[in-house]
Design a protein around this nucleic acid. Sequence first.
DNA 1: CGAGCGATTGAACGCTCTCAAAGTGAGTGG
DNA 2: CCACTCACTTTGAGAGCGTTCAATCGCTCG
Lengths: 180, 180
Amino acid sequence: MVGTVVRGTIKTYKLLADGRQQIVGFLFPGDFVGSPTQDTHHVFAEALTPVELCVFPFSTVQRLIREMPSLEHRLLAIAHEDLDLAQDWMLLLGRKTAQERLATFLLLLVNKASIRGVVGGPLELPMNRGEIADYLGLTIETVSRQFSKLKKAGLIRIDDSHAVAIIHLDRLAEIAEGTA
Amino acid sequence: MVGTVVRGTIKTYKLLADGRQQIVGFLFPGDFVGSPTQDTHHVFAEALTPVELCVFPFSTVQRLIREMPSLEHRLLAIAHEDLDLAQDWMLLLGRKTAQERLATFLLLLVNKASIRGVVGGPLELPMNRGEIADYLGLTIETVSRQFSKLKKAGLIRIDDSHAVAIIHLDRLAEIAEGTA
DNA sequence: CGAGCGATTGAACGCTCTCAAAGTGAGTGG
DNA sequence: CCACTCACTTTGAGAGCGTTCAATCGCTCG
């Protein structure tokens, strides 16, 4: 199955036997979803909000590709973009501090929002603290503490736990890259 | 540029401004290398041993795809396999303990070796402890300590720092998945 | 108003890191 | 053949960042 998110937010994640969870991606409207190859993609997915999808079954995708080979070019380009993003996240999970992780996460959401044309007002966070923690390889408490730290430093304003305004994008970017 | 490794081992990695490094993959003979899409893949690569590659420039790949569309199918499948592996590694980096990480790493090498048909004798490690650390999101000292711990537990035998024999594959697998 | 859930904050613990020293092996030159 | 160097690895001791455990806060809903 292949498709895109039309409305809402989805998390995709991997699990260990004892329940430890690592979120490998948040999917927003416009994001590609699914695997165009036969093999099952070993990842779980769960909607964070009511979601509207536009998906095609595998057989239809195969037909569309035959009729329009440029589709496969596009799918290949998307797959490599996703791979690059996954490797960026490996750098985050393997080498960044808690503060750098949260800063990187907020910048990612800002970028994703601006791509969707959502520029005015505070950043919307469809996920809760636990899901942010499972994305950043941290615990809920550490995520919360880092939010508080960024707030106290005046870099962000927390309207409520699901809405954050970025006050100093440049300083946040420095933190995210470890150059602060 | 697109191609495969014929002989030798390559590491691919990402860097932070201050030099922190995350290795995102080790490439062995038979592994695919490069990006078939125009955009530059933002990753560094370095040979660990003398390496022999079989690569084609971008223009040639484009021509080959036109002549043989199944090539693009194959490239797409490879990209999605790599994405799945990258996400498995995100789970490792975000949620596994040092012991679990090393066990997972050793099993990965065993699998890669058996795919290449290298089954007899101890496992060859072309990389040093520092590179293993940069792959597992740990330090050299922690990697070394975990090797010693596995050795003391009788799960592996360390012939020299670049050659390890796996004694209890099953127990190692349990550790790797957190079910030990 | 009280229950319940998520988020925040505090305190103490522990896994991994940092700093330091000693061990090991390959390569070089006397 | 042995002494020396140098890089890599191992091991030890102590520190620190993030976790764990626990209490409190704040919001929503009945």
